[in-house]
């Protein structure tokens, strides 16, 4: 699956975002500086501690998840859609690579972008507050899984989109609501019992909770179960990606 062809496509995909830091790495860095300034410095002192943690520290894992998944998603969706729009994805499609190799390369490159953004956000956070990692192995596993999951979803989005507007729609109307109702900025405990149950249908809750557990050792849910569910989701999404490439959805006539 990781052939010379996959490596070439992976390299192409990584070079595309690495050479454009103004479009890829600078925006999340600046956005998160603003988050930390507002929620940490300006408002932080006025907000009560949550589960015994300062507010800025409590939201840090959520912000890392948010940056990672949205960048993994956006990279895959944009790269696939732009390639379709300008038809240069034909360079890949007319090559002898297997469909699994193509998907592996696109997903791996987009996950790498998501993970780099996650590290950048952690670095920015470190400037504002000391960070400790309670469960490093869990953190790495979860971050890899969620970046792959959203890179895989980004591929579906990139294949589905018919116009650039569709990319914006996906980000604004799907990813963003999931994030804001995903317990990034609050603990589930602060919600009424009914809403706590409703939010369990949101996969973001599991991601944020597991990453928060990795950093702080605090979780609303059972982290191992959350990670297992995410791995299952990811496997399904990758299988869908390969299937869509195989049938040529959005790619061939």
């Amino acid at each position: 699956m990781w052939s010379v062809g996959s490596r070439a496509l992976f390299r192409r995909e990584v070079l595309r975002f690495v050479r454009r830091p103004k479009n890829t790495f600078m925006p999340p860095a600046i956005t998160n500086v603003l988050y930390f300034v507002v929620f940490g410095v300006v408002l932080g002192g006025r907000i009560d501690r949550i589960a015994g943690f300062e507010y800025i520290l409590f939201i840090l894992p959520g912000l890392i998840v948010l940056g990672t998944i949205s960048n993994a998603f956006e990279n895959a969706a944009f790269s696939i859609f732009h390639g379709r729009w300008n038809e240069y994805i034909h360079e890949t499609l007319t090559s002898p690579m297997a469909y699994t190799e193509m998907v592996a390369a696109y997903v791996a490159a987009s996950s790498v972008r998501g993970l780099i953004v996650g590290v950048i956000i952690a670095g920015v956070g470190r400037v504002f507050t000391p960070i400790t990692v309670e469960h490093a192995g869990f953190l790495v596993a979860t971050m890899v899984v969620i970046s792959v999951l959203f890179a895989g979803l980004g591929i579906v989005g990139g294949l589905w989109a018919r116009d650039f507007d569709d990319l914006t729609v996906m980000n604004q109307f799907l990813v963003r609501p999931l994030v804001f109702f995903g317990a990034v900025f609050y603990s589930l405990e602060v919600l009424p019992p009914l809403w706590q149950k409703v939010l369990l249908a949101n996969p973001m809750v599991y991601m944020v909770d597991t990453v928060r557990y990795s950093f702080l050792g605090y979780a609303d849910l059972v982290p191992a179960t959350s990670l297992a569910v995410l791995v299952g989701f990811t496997a399904v999404v990758l299988a869908v990606d390969v299937y869509l490439f195989k049938v040529g959805y959005g790619l061939t006539e």
């Binding site: 595309r16 360079e91 890949t92 690579m97």
Partner: peptide, 26 residues
């Protein structure tokens, strides 16, 4: 092909290198 379906992000030498890579060339 008839249409100009070329990767606009890279210098043309790299475009050709990528295409060769997709065909398994080191």
């Amino acid at each position: 092909p008839q249409e100009f379906n070329v990767d606009r992000f890279f210098p043309i030498r790299e475009v050709l290198m990528h295409k060769a890579g997709y065909h398994g060339i080191s």
